[in-house]
């Protein structure tokens, strides 16, 4: 991780709550919440297990404006049960994506921060994420871009990691992590020699924002500042990637080449070296502008 002490940034995306992210990302005072906390629509599955519920069930959804354009937005609260998806949480997200098909906003913004399925309601959560995937892809089919933003403390993992990669485009900060199985899950199941989840540098080289950017999996790598996320979202909002046979064949090719080229690599830095980047071990230490300059022209097949 680069040392950012001494640089006073705007509003950290990483540290903000789900609600703060929305209010600072959108045009001021434009957010209108759907199914707000006063309705008290919380998960019914937590109380029987002695777990406190939240009036939002860990996700805030609604409508608003981004640079004057109407958008739908969802923001997961990592602080509440790791942003995990249960029945209510998932239904809010699915409903929002389906609403987009009728309402035709300029885009749907998904502020993703989740470990995936909420184990306390695992079956309902798994089906809910499957419903989100189908709704998301249907929204895209109707020509509405779905943008994912990742940069919170809990990262974006499990089924939500799949959801993220179903979006048209992703915006991430250096602190953001994106993957399927969290490092701690791999360590617990396969042993510390497979993945040492306490090795933070290793974790970031494997699932961190810079690595994801270099592989072409995310379109924008930004500073940890909500304003930077906003600027990036405004910039890419109209760059829709239609789902077509051609685009999926292209994606298939990119993923095949990645597997062929880096399938035996053991470490992110090894991949970056193979991509032709000089001094790959220095990348994690660079600030964002220097990093972007150092890797210019090397980013893998952007999808």
């Amino acid at each position: 991780m680069s040392d950012l002490s001494g640089i006073r940034r705007g509003h950290s995306y990483y540290e903000a709550t789900a609600r703060d992210r929305i209010s600072k990302l959108l045009d001021s005072n434009s957010f209108q919440e759907l199914i707000g906390p006063a309705e008290r629509i919380a998960s019914p599955h937590l109380e029987p297990l002695g777990q406190p519920c939240s009036f939002n069930d860990g996700i805030i959804i609604g409508t608003g404006n981004l640079n004057g354009l109407p958008v739908l937005i969802a923001s997961q609260e990592g602080g509440f049960m790791g942003g995990s998806v249960g029945e209510v949480h998932g239904a809010k997200l699915t409903g929002l994506l389906e609403r987009a098909v009728d309402e035709k906003p300029a885009a749907v913004l998904l502020l993703l921060e989740s470990g995936g399925v909420r184990l306390h309601e695992a079956n309902a959560g798994l089906i809910a994420i499957s419903e989100v995937i189908r709704a998301l892809l249907t929204t895209r089919k109707s020509g509405i871009p779905v943008l994912g933003l990742i940069g919170g403390a809990y990262g974006c993992f499990g089924g939500m990691g799949i959801v993220a990669r179903c979006c048209d485009a992703l915006i991430i900060n250096e602190e953001g992590r994106l993957g399927l199985s969290g490092p701690d899950v791999i360590e617990t199941t396969m042993g510390v020699e497979e993945f040492d989840s306490t090795d933070r540098a290793l974790v970031w080289r494997t699932v961190g924002g810079k690595h994801r950017y270099l592989l072409g999996e995310v379109q924008c790598l930004v500073e940890d500042d909500i304003e930077a996320f906003r600027a990036a979202a405004i910039e890419i909002i109209d760059k829709v990637q239609p789902l077509s046979l051609e685009s999926l064949e292209q994606e298939n090719l990119v993923l095949s080449q990645r597997l062929a080229n880096y399938g035996h690599s053991q470490d992110g830095a090894e991949i970056w070296g193979a991509m032709g980047i000089a001094d790959p071990q220095k990348l994690p230490l660079m600030d964002i502008p220097s990093f972007l300059k150092a890797v210019e022209g090397k980013v893998q097949g952007n999808l």
Binding site: C166, V185, T206
Partner: peptide
């Protein structure tokens, strides 16, 4: 569950499969 799969972005490979099925 492996570091290699995560390094390559396995969630993206699974998303690709889901997208192909949706198409």
């Amino acid at each position: 569950l492996s570091k290699k799969d995560e390094l390559l972005g396995i969630n993206g490979y699974l998303a690709h499969l889901a997208k192909c099925l949706q198409l």
